[in-house]
Amino acid sequence: MWKWLHPYANPETTYHLSDRVIPWFGWLSGSLLTIGLVWALLFAPADYQQGDSFRIFYLHVPAASLSMGIYLGMAIAALCGMVWQLKLSDAAVAALAPVGAVFTAIALFTGAAWGKPMWGTWWVWDARLTSELVLLFLYLGVIAINNAFEDKQMAGKAASIIALVGVINLPIIKYSVEWWNTLHQGATVSKLGKPAMSLEMFWPFVVCFLGFAFFVATVTCIRFKTEILLRNSSRPWVKNLMLEQAK
């Protein structure tokens, strides 16, 4: 059943695949982000209550939801790595963690800069904000462990454990606004059915979100290539590739 997947467990095939998709993802991300951000900043209507400060939404919400999406992807890679002991999974975990950390940081920072004018405070220790901060620490933990061990295999194992254990945090972030009373409001776009915003505000969000998603894909592929090279540096295919590129 999984036979068709086997070639992709081969580092060489995967390396070349990522190499080939990077320019596509890069261009898609660049054009979608340009259109989306111009639309969001110049043409989307201002909110009836929050005025133009609402435009932070177009950066804050994609960053926050991608920070959770990236973590889910990283945890799935970690699970595959632990069960099937694929070295590629360790490379994927190591490649995803810094990207996720940056997106979490953006979500927290833009949230603070939005909270100050609207809520009246940069930060409050409510369940949503605190659990998102925990997510940042989980990412930093995975990065630190990957750098702490000389032996890449040991590092991969330890990082995978942290990544998997931290999955518990994802539903907590997602449902914190429903389970407890928080200062943070409920979900706007991930609601089942209609998003809680008018469509002329929603479409620029979709374009921005896709743009950021392809950005994640692009950067992850670049980092994935690096991690594959570092883990296979003495393989003949890497040597041949380097010699070819040196010409």
Partner: peptide, 17 residues
Amino acid sequence: FVWLSFGFGLIALLTLV
């Protein structure tokens, strides 16, 4: 606040790339 957010986002993403 708007430009603080977008400025931070731009710098963070650029640094990452």
